[in-house]
């Protein structure tokens, strides 16, 4: 289990990350969401020890993380890169060795992963001769090489084509199934919604929301959409109902609670011609916009 405790980073007077605390439990996939400059990359760099925190600490399995622990973490930085002028297989083998694998084991593992990602034929080619998409695949392989105990991935899905997104998701699921905690950041919120067990929303260096998608939704205000055969303008007169939008036969309302909503439905049925009365489930983007606008 990875735990961040009051992690803070200052650049001069600028507070880039402000007392960020959350956990990534064993086998869980945690999505890290936030706008540009929210502090996601800085936080991840501190987790990986690439950047020293100004305050706070990173705990791994309950104790402060060591360089030895970090050598077993898989990391994909926001700024991608491998050696452009070196062949794919040797440099992946080298990176595997840096993570503590023996040369033959690293070579074997690299070869397996390259084949899995359809790069089996290109192992001897220089990285720069690969297409951008294939370079991305090599980058993914580099991050999961050393049988990692934790995955920290900064925007792992950016720039991937749909099939690579699927391969990547599958790879992440395999890791969580083995109990490896995964922390990744993304701007693709529907992807985060689909994959993650829990979500951390970062805004201006602070955690503004934290929990599973359901929990975040449950915290969202109650909304219903009512569609009728005739005009729905009458909802304006119902007590306890805030009308958000009325467009002829359709109205979006925010009832004070479920009882008010129920009463509204009874009224509507009494008027006749109800086509739809449904709870509006906010998308993650809407929740995000809500919390990030604070």
């Amino acid at each position: 289990m990875l735990e961040l405790r009051g992690l803070t980073r200052r650049y001069g007077d600028v507070l880039a990350v402000d007392e960020v605390s959350f956990t990534v439990p064993r086998g869980a996939m945690v999505g890290f969401v936030g706008g540009n400059g929210a502090g996601k990359t800085t936080t991840m760099r501190m987790v990986m020890g690439v950047l020293a925190p100004s305050a706070g600490e990173v705990l791994w399995q309950g104790r402060p993380v060591t360089a030895g622990d970090r050598a077993r973490f898989g990391y994909m930085p926001e700024e991608r890169g491998l050696y452009p002028k070196q062949p794919v297989l040797p440099q992946l083998t080298y990176l595997g060795q840096l993570h503590g694998m023996s040369a033959p084991a690293a070579r074997e593992r690299s070869r397996d992963l390259l084949e899995r990602f359809g790069l089996g034929e290109r192992v001897k080619d220089k990285l720069e001769t690969l297409s951008l998409g294939n370079q991305q695949r090599a980058q993914i392989i580099a991050s999961v090489l050393g049988d990692p105990t934790l995955l920290v991935l900064d925007e792992p899905f950016s720039g991937l084509d749909p099939s690579a997104v699927d391969q990547m998701s599958e790879l992440l699921r395999e890791h969580t199934a083995r109990g490896v905690p995964v922390l990744f950041s993304s701007h693709q919120l529907e992807l985060v919604d689909r994959l993650c067990d829990s979500i951390v929303v970062l805004h201006q260096g602070r955690v503004v929301a934290h929990g599973s998608a359901e929990q975040l939704r449950a915290g969202a205000p109650l909304r219903y959409r009512l569609t009728m055969a005739g005009d729905t303008g009458w909802v304006r007169g119902v007590p306890g109902v805030e009308v958000l939008d009325v467009d002829g036969p359709t109205a979006v309302v925010a009832p004070a609670d479920e009882q008010v909503a129920e009463r509204l439905l009874v009224d509507a049925v009494a008027r006749g011609g109800v086509r739809e009365f449904a709870r509006v489930v906010p998308t993650l983007s809407e929740i995000y916009r809500e919390v990030a606008s604070v």
């Binding site: 360089a67 050598a71 990391y75 994909m76 890169g81 491998l82 050696y83 990176l95 993570h99 580099a142």
Partner: peptide, 17 residues
């Protein structure tokens, strides 16, 4: 500078001191 320019340095820095 090659490692820095190609950005691989962050992977290296994360793996070893």
């Amino acid at each position: 500078v090659e490692e820095k320019q190609s950005r691989i340095v962050e992977i290296l820095a994360a793996a070893i001191p």
